[in-house]
Simulated assay, not measured.
Amino acid sequence: MNPAPSLLSRPGYASDYADDYDRWFAKPGITGATVESLAALAGHGPVLELGIGTGRVALPLRARGIGVHGVDGSEAMLRRLRAKPGGAGIPVTLGDFAEVPVDGSFSLAFLAGGTFAELPDQAAQARCFTNVAARLTPGGLFVLDAHVPEALAAATGPEIVSEGEDHLVLCYRRLDPSTQRYRSHYVIHEDGRTRHLRVEFRYAGHGELDLMARQAGLRLKERWGSWTGTPFTGDSTYHVSVYERP
C-alpha cells in the first residue's frame, strides 16, 4: 500500500530505526515517481521538504540542480542525511515541521511518504498549512500525499513492508474512527530476533485537507491517485494533492 510509511518526525523511534529506514522503506519505483513529479512542479525553486529525513527525495532533487531546504524533528535521521554524498550541502533545520521554522520563500513545499499524518491533531495539521502558505511565493505549490481513510479501514491482514533472505518486516494498522487516528504496528524479524514498533498517525480525508488549505489561503490545483499522476478515483488507496497559493 502506498504511500510508504514515514518514520521521520518522532525522535524516539526515529533514533532507533534511522539506520534501517532506507533499506526498508525507500522503494526505488515510488521514490523515482515522487522525484519526477516534484521536479516538474518545482519551477525555479528553491523547494522545501518537511520531514526530509534521510534525504530519500531531497538528494535526487538536488542532483537535478534544484535548491532544496529541509525541516525534520529527528537528529538521527539528519545524521544519516549528512553522511550521504551531497547530504551535507542541504540546509536543514531541526524542529517541528508544523511550525515551518525557516526563513525565505519557496516555489514548492512538500511532504512525501505519508509524513503529514504524523502531525498529532487537526490543530497541528491546520497550522502546518497556514505556515506553509506564508512561505510560498505567489503561484507557489504545497504538495502532500495521504492515505484514503476508507481504504485504510477496508484493509485487512498484515502488509509486507520489506522481505529478504535475512529479514521480514510486516505492518498491521488499527484505526480508531472516534479520534481519526490509527496505529501502525511494525513487526521486524532479523538476526534471529523479533522487534515490535508502534507508530501513531492522525488521518484526514481529502475534503478536510481541502478545507484546511482554503482556510490557509490555498486552493486545490490538482489531485492524483499516485505519484505517477494517475487519476484519483473511487478505487484509489491514496492521493497526491497539489495546492496553490493564488
Score class of each variant (00 low, 15 high):
residue 3 P to G: 04
residue 5 P to F: 14
residue 6 S to N: 11
residue 7 L to Y: 11
residue 8 L to K: 09
residue 9 S to T: 10
residue 10 R to I: 15
residue 11 P to K: 15
residue 11 P to D: 13
residue 17 Y to M: 11
residue 24 W to G: 04
residue 25 F to I: 12
residue 26 A to V: 12
residue 27 K to I: 07
residue 28 P to T: 06
residue 28 P to G: 07
residue 30 I to P: 00
residue 32 G to Y: 02
residue 34 T to P: 00
residue 35 V to W: 01
residue 36 E to Y: 01
residue 37 S to G: 01
residue 39 A to K: 02
residue 41 L to D: 06
residue 42 A to M: 03
residue 42 A to V: 10
residue 42 A to I: 14
residue 44 H to W: 05
residue 47 V to D: 03
residue 51 G to L: 00
residue 51 G to K: 00
residue 53 G to P: 01
residue 54 T to K: 06
residue 60 P to L: 08
residue 61 L to P: 01
residue 61 L to Q: 00
residue 63 A to I: 04
residue 65 G to N: 07
residue 67 G to A: 12
residue 71 V to N: 00
residue 75 E to P: 00
residue 76 A to C: 02
residue 77 M to G: 00
residue 79 R to F: 00
residue 80 R to G: 02
residue 80 R to M: 13
residue 81 L to G: 05
residue 86 G to F: 12
residue 87 G to R: 03
residue 93 T to V: 15
residue 93 T to M: 13
residue 94 L to W: 03
residue 95 G to T: 12
residue 97 F to E: 06
residue 98 A to C: 09
residue 101 P to N: 14
residue 102 V to L: 15
residue 103 D to A: 15
residue 105 S to D: 07
residue 106 F to H: 11
residue 111 L to V: 14
residue 112 A to W: 05
residue 112 A to T: 15
residue 113 G to N: 09
residue 113 G to K: 11
residue 114 G to F: 03
residue 117 A to P: 00
residue 118 E to N: 05
residue 118 E to A: 05
residue 119 L to V: 11
residue 122 Q to H: 10
residue 122 Q to E: 14
residue 123 A to T: 09
residue 124 A to I: 01
residue 126 A to F: 12
residue 128 C to P: 05
residue 129 F to H: 07
residue 129 F to P: 04
residue 131 N to D: 11
residue 133 A to H: 09
residue 135 R to A: 12
residue 138 P to C: 15
residue 139 G to N: 04
residue 142 F to P: 01
residue 147 H to C: 03
residue 149 P to I: 13
residue 149 P to C: 03
residue 152 L to H: 01
residue 152 L to I: 10
residue 153 A to S: 02
residue 154 A to L: 01
residue 155 A to D: 03
residue 159 E to Q: 08
residue 164 G to N: 03
residue 167 H to Q: 11
residue 167 H to S: 14
residue 170 L to G: 11
residue 171 C to Q: 10
residue 172 Y to N: 10
residue 174 R to K: 08
residue 179 T to I: 11
residue 180 Q to I: 13
residue 182 Y to S: 07
residue 182 Y to H: 14
residue 183 R to E: 08
residue 185 H to D: 09
residue 188 I to G: 06
residue 189 H to R: 08
residue 191 D to T: 05
residue 191 D to V: 07
residue 193 R to K: 12
residue 197 L to T: 02
residue 197 L to Q: 08
residue 198 R to I: 10
residue 198 R to Y: 06
residue 202 R to D: 02
residue 202 R to K: 02
residue 203 Y to K: 01
residue 204 A to C: 07
residue 204 A to G: 00
residue 210 D to F: 14
residue 217 G to I: 13
residue 217 G to K: 07
residue 218 L to I: 13
residue 219 R to C: 06
residue 221 K to Y: 06
residue 227 W to H: 04
residue 228 T to D: 11
residue 228 T to K: 08
residue 232 F to A: 10
residue 234 G to T: 04
residue 234 G to K: 00
residue 236 S to D: 08
residue 237 T to N: 06
residue 245 R to H: 10
